[in-house]
Simulated scan of single mutants.
Amino acid sequence: MPWKNGGGTTTEIAVHPQGASLDAFDWRISMAHVGGDGPFSSFPGVDRTLAVLRGDGIRLALSDGETITLDRQTEPFAFAADRSVAGQLVAGPIDDLNVMSRRGGWAHAMWRLTGPGPHALDAGAGLLVLVAHAGDWKVTEASRTEALAPGDSALLEGPAKVELSAAEADGELFVISLLPLA
């Protein structure tokens, strides 16, 4: 689907409520291909986290003068989506993973897991969204095990205790925690 500002396209992974528009979601997870420099779309009342999946990175210039460079090794970066942000590609196009949640209604966090594991997670009262980026992953909850290949995603509702492991030492998976605040 097109970006809100028309500057590119994005692939939606999950949105709540299902089918919500770009102006009406409670939370949204997507991947985007960024092929050129330019401003980010503004989302009033929304918090956003961004991680680079492919490419050499992007420099973000935020309205208060803060600048940050994101690449495949940096931690995901959280910022207010109603803040004015301009992106400048470091050396060619990138693909990114983007999480947004409506401030006051939902809170989110995103982090990267690497290596074979095992990694133990607790979904608590919220949701966990797993996005496999590299390697084949096993997701075990209680006595049930599912496989995630690169590009696969899974949504787990809490309470749930999950163990994750990758078949390869260079496995990479992003974990997104979503917590309702109301």
Rank of each mutant, 00 (worst) to 15 (best):
M1L: 11
P2W: 07
P2A: 13
W3F: 07
W3Y: 07
G6Q: 03
G7N: 07
G8D: 01
T9R: 05
T10S: 15
T11R: 14
E12T: 14
E12L: 13
E12G: 12
E12A: 10
A14E: 10
V15G: 03
P17Y: 06
P17N: 07
G19L: 09
G19K: 10
A20Y: 03
S21W: 11
A24Q: 00
F25C: 01
F25L: 02
F25V: 05
F25N: 03
D26G: 03
D26V: 02
M31Y: 04
M31G: 04
A32W: 04
V34G: 02
D37T: 06
D37E: 00
D37F: 02
S41K: 07
G45I: 01
G45F: 04
D47P: 02
R48Y: 01
T49H: 02
T49S: 14
L53H: 12
G55K: 01
G57P: 05
G57A: 07
I58Q: 06
I58P: 02
L60Y: 06
L60Q: 08
A61L: 07
L62D: 00
L62R: 06
T69S: 08
T69H: 04
L70K: 01
L70V: 08
L70S: 00
R72Q: 15
R72C: 12
T74K: 09
P76I: 00
F77W: 12
F77A: 05
A78I: 02
A78P: 06
F79N: 08
A80E: 10
A80L: 09
A80V: 08
A81H: 00
A81F: 02
R83H: 12
V85P: 05
A86T: 14
A86N: 05
G87Q: 11
G87K: 13
G87V: 07
G87E: 10
Q88Y: 07
L89V: 13
A91L: 11
I94H: 09
N98H: 13
M100G: 04
M100S: 04
S101D: 00
G104S: 11
W106R: 01
H108M: 08
A109E: 03
A109L: 01
T114C: 12
G115I: 00
P116K: 06
P118S: 12
L121H: 11
D122G: 10
D122S: 13
D122A: 14
A123N: 07
G124E: 14
G124Q: 15
G124M: 08
A125M: 09
G126R: 05
G126T: 08
G126P: 01
G126I: 03
L128A: 09
L128P: 05
H133A: 08
W137L: 01
W137E: 02
V139E: 05
V139Y: 02
E141V: 06
A142I: 10
R144A: 05
R144C: 04
T145F: 13
L148N: 02
L148W: 00
P150I: 15
S153K: 05
A154S: 15
L155I: 14
L156D: 10
L156I: 15
G158H: 06
G158W: 05
A160R: 15
A160K: 09
V162H: 11
S165M: 12
E168R: 14
A169W: 03
D170K: 12
E172C: 12
E172P: 03
F174E: 04
V175K: 00
V175Q: 03
S177T: 15
L178P: 04
P180V: 13
L181V: 13
A182T: 14
